[in-house]
Protein backbone atom coordinates (compact mmCIF):
# COMPACT_ATOMS: atom_id res chain seq x y z
CA UNK A 1 0.00 0.00 0.00
CA UNK A 2 1.25 3.45 -0.87
CA UNK A 3 1.13 6.00 1.97
CA UNK A 4 -1.95 8.22 2.00
CA UNK A 5 -1.08 11.61 0.49
CA UNK A 6 -1.29 14.70 2.72
CA UNK A 7 -4.45 16.78 3.09
CA UNK A 8 -3.19 19.53 0.78
CA UNK A 9 -2.12 17.04 -1.88
CA UNK A 10 -5.61 15.50 -1.84
CA UNK A 11 -7.57 18.75 -1.76
CA UNK A 12 -5.59 21.31 -3.72
CA UNK A 13 -7.91 21.02 -6.73
CA UNK A 14 -11.03 21.70 -4.62
CA UNK A 15 -9.31 24.65 -2.93
CA UNK A 16 -8.28 26.06 -6.29
CA UNK A 17 -11.87 25.77 -7.55
CA UNK A 18 -13.18 27.65 -4.50
CA UNK A 19 -10.51 30.35 -4.92
CA UNK A 20 -11.47 30.66 -8.59
CA UNK A 21 -15.15 31.13 -7.66
CA UNK A 22 -14.18 33.86 -5.20
CA UNK A 23 -12.09 35.48 -7.93
CA UNK A 24 -14.95 35.41 -10.44
CA UNK A 25 -17.23 37.04 -7.83
CA UNK A 26 -14.70 39.80 -7.28
CA UNK A 27 -14.35 40.42 -11.03
CA UNK A 28 -18.15 40.48 -11.38
CA UNK A 29 -18.36 43.08 -8.62
CA UNK A 30 -15.96 45.30 -10.58
CA UNK A 31 -17.72 44.88 -13.93
CA UNK A 32 -21.33 44.92 -12.80
CA UNK A 33 -21.69 48.01 -10.67
CA UNK A 34 -25.48 48.35 -10.58
CA UNK A 35 -27.02 49.15 -7.20
CA UNK A 36 -30.19 47.79 -5.61
CA UNK A 37 -30.51 51.03 -3.65
CA UNK A 38 -28.10 53.97 -3.40
CA UNK A 39 -24.87 52.63 -1.86
CA UNK A 40 -26.09 48.97 -2.00
CA UNK A 41 -24.28 47.20 -4.87
CA UNK A 42 -26.01 44.23 -6.48
CA UNK A 43 -22.72 42.31 -6.42
CA UNK A 44 -20.77 43.37 -3.32
CA UNK A 45 -17.02 42.78 -3.59
CA UNK A 46 -15.05 41.03 -0.88
CA UNK A 47 -13.66 44.27 0.60
CA UNK A 48 -17.27 45.39 1.21
CA UNK A 49 -18.47 42.02 2.51
CA UNK A 50 -15.73 41.64 5.10
CA UNK A 51 -15.57 45.34 5.92
CA UNK A 52 -18.69 47.47 5.88
CA UNK A 53 -21.08 44.51 5.71
CA UNK A 54 -19.55 42.66 8.64
CA UNK A 55 -19.61 45.83 10.72
CA UNK A 56 -23.26 46.49 9.82
CA UNK A 57 -24.28 43.13 11.26
CA UNK A 58 -23.86 44.79 14.65
CA UNK A 59 -27.46 45.93 13.99
CA UNK A 60 -28.59 42.42 14.93
CA UNK A 61 -26.94 42.45 18.33
CA UNK A 62 -29.57 42.94 21.00
CA UNK A 63 -27.11 44.04 23.69
CA UNK A 64 -25.73 42.30 26.76
CA UNK A 65 -22.35 40.86 27.78
CA UNK A 66 -21.16 44.45 28.26
CA UNK A 67 -21.43 45.16 24.54
CA UNK A 68 -24.14 47.77 23.95
CA UNK A 69 -26.48 47.40 20.96
CA UNK A 70 -26.87 49.82 18.09
CA UNK A 71 -30.51 50.26 19.14
CA UNK A 72 -29.25 51.63 22.48
CA UNK A 73 -27.32 54.30 20.58
CA UNK A 74 -23.90 52.68 20.52
CA UNK A 75 -21.82 52.94 17.33
CA UNK A 76 -21.54 49.66 15.38
CA UNK A 77 -18.54 47.62 16.47
CA UNK A 78 -16.93 44.43 15.16
CA UNK A 79 -17.40 42.90 18.62
CA UNK A 80 -21.15 43.45 18.44
CA UNK A 81 -21.19 42.15 14.84
CA UNK A 82 -19.40 38.93 15.76
CA UNK A 83 -21.67 38.47 18.79
CA UNK A 84 -24.69 39.00 16.52
CA UNK A 85 -23.44 36.33 14.14
CA UNK A 86 -22.76 33.88 16.96
CA UNK A 87 -26.06 34.37 18.76
CA UNK A 88 -28.23 34.23 15.63
CA UNK A 89 -26.31 31.26 14.25
CA UNK A 90 -26.70 29.51 17.57
CA UNK A 91 -30.48 30.02 17.54
CA UNK A 92 -30.79 28.64 14.02
CA UNK A 93 -28.49 25.69 14.63
CA UNK A 94 -30.31 24.71 17.83
CA UNK A 95 -33.65 24.81 15.99
CA UNK A 96 -32.18 22.80 13.13
CA UNK A 97 -30.65 20.06 15.23
CA UNK A 98 -33.57 19.80 17.65
CA UNK A 99 -35.88 19.35 14.63
CA UNK A 100 -33.42 17.00 12.98
CA UNK A 101 -33.22 14.79 16.06
CA UNK A 102 -36.98 14.63 16.58
CA UNK A 103 -37.70 14.12 12.88
CA UNK A 104 -35.00 11.49 12.34
CA UNK A 105 -36.09 9.43 15.33
CA UNK A 106 -39.81 9.69 14.55
CA UNK A 107 -39.31 8.98 10.84
CA UNK A 108 -37.04 6.01 11.53
CA UNK A 109 -39.45 4.52 14.06
CA UNK A 110 -42.40 4.88 11.68
CA UNK A 111 -40.36 3.56 8.75
CA UNK A 112 -39.38 0.47 10.75
CA UNK A 113 -42.95 0.06 12.01
CA UNK A 114 -44.42 -0.26 8.51
CA UNK A 115 -42.16 -3.22 7.85
CA UNK A 116 -42.79 -4.84 11.24
CA UNK A 117 -46.28 -6.15 10.51
CA UNK A 118 -49.21 -5.44 8.19
CA UNK A 119 -51.23 -3.27 10.57
CA UNK A 120 -48.84 -0.34 10.96
CA UNK A 121 -48.37 -0.49 7.21
CA UNK A 122 -52.09 -0.13 6.59
CA UNK A 123 -52.46 2.64 9.17
CA UNK A 124 -49.31 4.70 8.64
CA UNK A 125 -48.10 4.10 5.12
CA UNK A 126 -50.77 5.76 2.98
CA UNK A 127 -51.18 8.95 5.04
CA UNK A 128 -47.42 9.45 5.15
CA UNK A 129 -47.00 8.79 1.45
CA UNK A 130 -49.69 11.45 0.96
CA UNK A 131 -47.93 13.93 3.27
CA UNK A 132 -44.75 13.39 1.29
CA UNK A 133 -46.29 14.95 -1.78
CA UNK A 134 -47.07 18.25 -0.01
CA UNK A 135 -44.51 20.94 -0.83
CA UNK A 136 -42.66 21.56 2.40
CA UNK A 137 -42.32 25.35 2.26
CA UNK A 138 -46.03 25.73 1.51
CA UNK A 139 -46.66 24.33 4.98
CA UNK A 140 -44.73 27.07 6.83
CA UNK A 141 -47.74 29.34 7.49
CA UNK A 142 -49.82 26.37 8.59
CA UNK A 143 -47.22 25.29 11.12
CA UNK A 144 -46.96 28.83 12.41
CA UNK A 145 -50.68 28.97 13.05
CA UNK A 146 -50.69 25.53 14.65
CA UNK A 147 -47.54 25.67 16.73
CA UNK A 148 -46.83 29.41 17.02
CA UNK A 149 -43.78 31.41 16.02
CA UNK A 150 -41.75 30.39 19.06
CA UNK A 151 -39.13 27.67 19.33
CA UNK A 152 -41.64 24.79 19.23
CA UNK A 153 -43.19 25.98 15.97
CA UNK A 154 -39.86 26.01 14.15
CA UNK A 155 -38.67 22.73 15.59
CA UNK A 156 -41.98 21.08 14.70
CA UNK A 157 -41.67 22.32 11.14
CA UNK A 158 -38.09 21.11 10.70
CA UNK A 159 -39.00 17.79 12.37
CA UNK A 160 -41.92 17.39 9.99
CA UNK A 161 -39.80 18.00 6.89
CA UNK A 162 -37.06 15.65 8.06
CA UNK A 163 -39.41 13.04 9.50
CA UNK A 164 -41.11 12.58 6.13
CA UNK A 165 -37.75 12.10 4.42
CA UNK A 166 -36.58 9.63 7.03
CA UNK A 167 -39.83 7.70 6.92
CA UNK A 168 -39.59 7.24 3.17
CA UNK A 169 -35.85 6.50 3.30
CA UNK A 170 -36.12 3.92 6.08
CA UNK A 171 -39.21 2.19 4.65
CA UNK A 172 -37.50 1.89 1.29
CA UNK A 173 -34.18 0.75 2.75
CA UNK A 174 -35.88 -1.99 4.77
CA UNK A 175 -37.54 -3.27 1.60
CA UNK A 176 -34.09 -3.48 0.00
CA UNK A 177 -32.51 -5.65 2.71
CA UNK A 178 -31.55 -8.91 0.95
CA UNK A 179 -33.87 -11.75 1.97
CA UNK A 180 -30.90 -14.07 2.51
CA UNK A 181 -29.72 -12.10 5.56
CA UNK A 182 -33.20 -12.24 7.07
CA UNK A 183 -33.50 -16.00 6.36
CA UNK A 184 -30.04 -16.57 7.77
CA UNK A 185 -30.88 -14.78 11.02
CA UNK A 186 -34.17 -16.65 11.30
CA UNK A 187 -32.51 -20.05 10.94
CA UNK A 188 -30.30 -19.09 13.88
CA UNK A 189 -33.42 -18.52 15.92
CA UNK A 190 -33.32 -14.71 16.00
CA UNK A 191 -36.50 -13.21 17.46
CA UNK A 192 -38.23 -10.37 15.62
CA UNK A 193 -36.63 -7.76 17.88
CA UNK A 194 -33.19 -9.36 17.52
CA UNK A 195 -33.67 -9.49 13.75
CA UNK A 196 -34.33 -5.74 13.68
CA UNK A 197 -31.44 -4.93 15.98
CA UNK A 198 -28.82 -7.18 14.41
CA UNK A 199 -29.84 -7.35 10.75
CA UNK A 200 -32.35 -4.74 9.59
CA UNK A 201 -30.79 -1.71 11.31
CA UNK A 202 -27.18 -2.37 10.28
CA UNK A 203 -28.24 -3.41 6.79
CA UNK A 204 -30.11 -0.14 6.15
CA UNK A 205 -27.34 2.11 7.52
CA UNK A 206 -25.60 2.65 4.16
CA UNK A 207 -28.87 3.81 2.63
CA UNK A 208 -29.66 5.90 5.70
CA UNK A 209 -26.44 7.78 5.10
CA UNK A 210 -27.85 9.06 1.81
CA UNK A 211 -31.15 9.83 3.55
CA UNK A 212 -29.32 11.78 6.24
CA UNK A 213 -27.43 13.87 3.69
CA UNK A 214 -30.70 14.65 1.93
CA UNK A 215 -32.32 15.46 5.28
CA UNK A 216 -29.49 17.82 6.26
CA UNK A 217 -30.05 19.81 3.07
CA UNK A 218 -33.80 19.88 3.59
CA UNK A 219 -33.29 20.73 7.25
CA UNK A 220 -31.29 23.87 6.46
CA UNK A 221 -33.97 24.90 3.98
CA UNK A 222 -36.78 24.17 6.43
CA UNK A 223 -35.28 26.07 9.35
CA UNK A 224 -34.71 29.09 7.13
CA UNK A 225 -38.24 28.84 5.78
CA UNK A 226 -39.58 28.73 9.31
CA UNK A 227 -37.50 31.77 10.30
CA UNK A 228 -38.61 33.85 7.32
CA UNK A 229 -42.00 34.19 8.90
CA UNK A 230 -42.23 35.65 12.33
CA UNK A 231 -38.86 34.83 13.86
CA UNK A 232 -37.12 37.46 16.02
CA UNK A 233 -33.70 35.86 15.76
CA UNK A 234 -31.74 33.47 13.64
CA UNK A 235 -30.09 33.55 10.24
CA UNK A 236 -33.44 33.44 8.42
CA UNK A 237 -34.57 36.50 10.37
CA UNK A 238 -31.34 38.31 9.40
CA UNK A 239 -32.01 37.58 5.72
CA UNK A 240 -35.63 38.78 5.84
CA UNK A 241 -34.66 41.94 7.71
CA UNK A 242 -31.88 42.65 5.19
CA UNK A 243 -34.22 42.03 2.29
CA UNK A 244 -36.64 44.69 3.56
CA UNK A 245 -33.90 47.32 3.31
CA UNK A 246 -32.32 45.90 0.15
CA UNK A 247 -29.13 45.13 2.08
CA UNK A 248 -27.87 42.74 -0.58
CA UNK A 249 -24.42 42.54 0.95
CA UNK A 250 -25.81 41.36 4.28
CA UNK A 251 -27.92 38.69 2.58
CA UNK A 252 -24.83 37.55 0.76
CA UNK A 253 -22.87 37.42 3.99
CA UNK A 254 -25.53 35.28 5.67
CA UNK A 255 -25.58 33.02 2.61
CA UNK A 256 -21.83 32.53 3.08
CA UNK A 257 -22.46 31.60 6.70
CA UNK A 258 -24.90 28.98 5.46
CA UNK A 259 -22.37 27.53 3.11
CA UNK A 260 -19.90 27.36 5.97
CA UNK A 261 -22.28 25.73 8.46
CA UNK A 262 -23.73 23.30 5.95
CA UNK A 263 -20.22 22.24 4.88
CA UNK A 264 -19.16 21.76 8.48
CA UNK A 265 -22.26 19.71 9.29
CA UNK A 266 -21.76 17.55 6.19
CA UNK A 267 -18.12 17.03 7.08
CA UNK A 268 -18.92 16.06 10.68
CA UNK A 269 -21.63 13.67 9.56
CA UNK A 270 -19.38 12.21 6.89
CA UNK A 271 -16.69 11.48 9.43
CA UNK A 272 -19.11 9.91 11.91
CA UNK A 273 -20.85 7.80 9.30
CA UNK A 274 -17.57 6.51 7.95
CA UNK A 275 -16.87 5.05 11.34
CA UNK A 276 -20.28 3.31 11.47
CA UNK A 277 -19.89 2.08 7.92
CA UNK A 278 -16.38 0.79 8.26
CA UNK A 279 -17.66 -2.58 7.05
CA UNK A 280 -18.71 -1.34 3.63
CA UNK A 281 -16.18 -1.37 0.83
CA UNK A 282 -14.32 1.88 0.43
CA UNK A 283 -13.55 3.05 -3.02
CA UNK A 284 -12.30 6.48 -3.90
CA UNK A 285 -11.91 5.62 -7.54
CA UNK A 286 -13.77 7.41 -10.29
CA UNK A 287 -15.77 5.39 -12.80
CA UNK A 288 -12.94 5.56 -15.29
CA UNK A 289 -9.23 5.99 -14.66
Amino acid sequence: MTPRPGWLARNWASLAAIAAMAGVWEILSLIYTAEAAPGEPMVPGWEIVFGRTLLSLADYWGGGLGVPSVAEGAPPSYTAAVLAIISNSFDTIVRLYAGLAVGAVAGTVLGLAVSWSPWPRRVVDSPLQFLRTLPLLAMVPLFQLWFGTEFIGKVAFVAYGIGVIFFAGVANAVRNVPQIFIDNARTFGASRATLYRTVILPAILPELRATMLLALGTGWGAVLGAEYLGAQSGLGYMIVYSEQFAYLDRMFFVALLFVLYASVSYAIFDRLSRRWLDWTAKSGRAVAG
Binding site: I180, D183, R186, T187, F188
Partner: peptide, 20 residues
Amino acid sequence: TGPGPSRGMVFQKDSVFPWM
Protein backbone atom coordinates in the same frame (compact mmCIF):
# COMPACT_ATOMS: atom_id res chain seq x y z
CA THR B 1 -43.73 -24.64 12.38
CA GLY B 2 -40.90 -22.19 11.85
CA PRO B 3 -37.13 -21.79 11.92
CA GLY B 4 -35.27 -22.82 15.04
CA PRO B 5 -31.73 -23.28 16.30
CA SER B 6 -31.96 -27.11 16.06
CA ARG B 7 -31.62 -26.73 12.27
CA GLY B 8 -28.73 -24.75 10.80
CA MET B 9 -28.58 -23.71 7.20
CA VAL B 10 -25.77 -22.82 4.82
CA PHE B 11 -27.12 -20.98 1.81
CA GLN B 12 -26.14 -21.01 -1.81
CA LYS B 13 -25.42 -17.29 -1.83
CA ASP B 14 -23.24 -15.54 0.70
CA SER B 15 -25.17 -15.18 3.92
CA VAL B 16 -22.36 -13.93 6.15
CA PHE B 17 -23.40 -10.57 7.62
CA PRO B 18 -21.08 -7.95 6.11
CA TRP B 19 -21.61 -5.58 9.06
CA MET B 20 -20.20 -8.00 11.63
